[in-house]
Simulated scan of single mutants.
Amino acid sequence: MKNRITSLFGIQYPIIQAGMVWCSGWKLASAVSNAGGLGVIGAGSMYPEVLLEHIQKCKKATSKPFAVNVPLLYPGVEHVLDIIVAEGVKIVFTSAGNPSSWTGFLKEKGIIVVHVIANTKFALKAEACGVDAIVAEGFEAGGHNGREETTTICLIPMIKAAVKIPVIAAGGIGSGSAMLAAFALGAEGVQVGSAFAVAEESSAHPNFKHKIVESVEGDTKLRMKKLVPVRLLKNEFADAIATAEAEGANAEELKQLLGRARAKLGMFEGNMAEGELEIGQVSAMLRDIKPAAVILKEMWEGFLLARTRILNS
């Protein structure tokens, strides 16, 4: 397929692997890129020196384009961006912060910039800052989420109508038919998180992968809206958060309950009881742990099959 997204990134398929904390290391990013999509290293769970190692290993593992996702609110972001520039990374996805802070700097270095948003207001702001494309992430998505709770099926056409730059749909997309639906709403690419979180090459702990594929409908909830909204898979920690919220806990109390390195404890170290387990609603549809290339191939073939079925109906 040729469209503005595949041309912008220089990729074969308009499928982008999300830059997920504790899941998106160089192995996953290079596997997705080698399969024709756009692999993304998630810098949100990496110290600068760790990110440097992942970028260098990714460059050795693939000759194809790949990107780095950078949460702008994280401390030390300037060191992360300096490494990205020095290592010649060509594509950066920014999130969780103001795109006006660093978009100009990155564009001056010749880097393609994509910003993740969850509402029209920030889509317009990102476009005005000069980003090349937008990821519009709906309520179904895993990890940090929009406070508005706008679903992907509502968000994509609103963002498409508001901006002129390409829109990449995210949130609840784990199949080819879901990808086709996003395209019907105006998206020119999809960003896929949960489906790649359970890939063989994902750096997520095997315990987390197995818990994802064993999950069922209703096993994820959006929590901590008074702090930073995040979609969590049910476990003892999520239950504790739910109880605290029901009792009226404020942001500071939730922060104390969250503590430090909670996501690492669950997603990377495999503590399924006390860890923070970030995953999307589409986890209820995932049943297998497969290579990233197989996941991408099945999604693309499912997209083509669904499109043919609609055209012939």
Rank of each mutant, 00 (worst) to 15 (best):
V230G: 00
I153T: 13
P229Q: 03
T152R: 01
H205S: 14
E201P: 10
R147Q: 14
H144D: 10
G218N: 07
I159T: 01
A204D: 05
I168H: 02
A238E: 15
T243P: 00
T151M: 12
G142C: 08
A242I: 13
F183S: 04
F139R: 09
G176R: 03
D219N: 14
P166K: 10
A244I: 02
L232C: 15
F139Q: 06
N250F: 07
G171W: 07
A162W: 09
M224D: 02
A181I: 03
A242Q: 13
V198N: 02
R223Q: 12
A170W: 07
E149Q: 15
I165W: 10
K225M: 11
L232D: 02
C154E: 10
K225S: 11
E201V: 08
K221G: 01
G174W: 02
A197N: 08
T150D: 06
D239E: 15
R223L: 15
A195S: 15
E201I: 09
G193P: 04
P229G: 01
A178P: 00
L180G: 06
G171F: 05
T152K: 03
N145H: 02
I153M: 15
I173F: 11
K164T: 14
A246L: 13
H205Y: 11
V167E: 01
S194F: 08
A170M: 04
A187N: 04
E201A: 09
A199T: 07
E247R: 15
A197P: 00
L232M: 14
S175M: 12
I165F: 08
S177W: 03
A187T: 06
F208M: 12
M158N: 08
P206Y: 11
A242V: 05
A162C: 05
A141E: 08
E214V: 00
R231H: 03
T151P: 00
D239V: 01
F139G: 00
R223D: 00
L233D: 07
E140V: 02
S215T: 12
A240W: 00
A244C: 06
K225E: 03
E149W: 00
S215C: 13
R147V: 14
A184S: 15
A251L: 01
H210R: 15
A197W: 00
K209V: 05
P206E: 13
A182G: 04
S175D: 10
S203L: 10
A246Y: 03
L180P: 02
R223P: 00
E140I: 07
S177H: 06
M179E: 06
M224Q: 12
I173Q: 09
E140D: 03
E236R: 14
G193D: 04
L180F: 12
Q191C: 13
L227S: 11
N250T: 12
H144W: 02
G171I: 07
T243Y: 05
E217S: 14
M224A: 14
A249L: 11
P157I: 05
T220C: 11
V163P: 05
E140K: 06
E140Y: 07
V228C: 13
R223E: 09
K226S: 13
I156L: 06
I168R: 03
T150E: 11
L232H: 01
F183T: 04
P166G: 07
G172H: 04
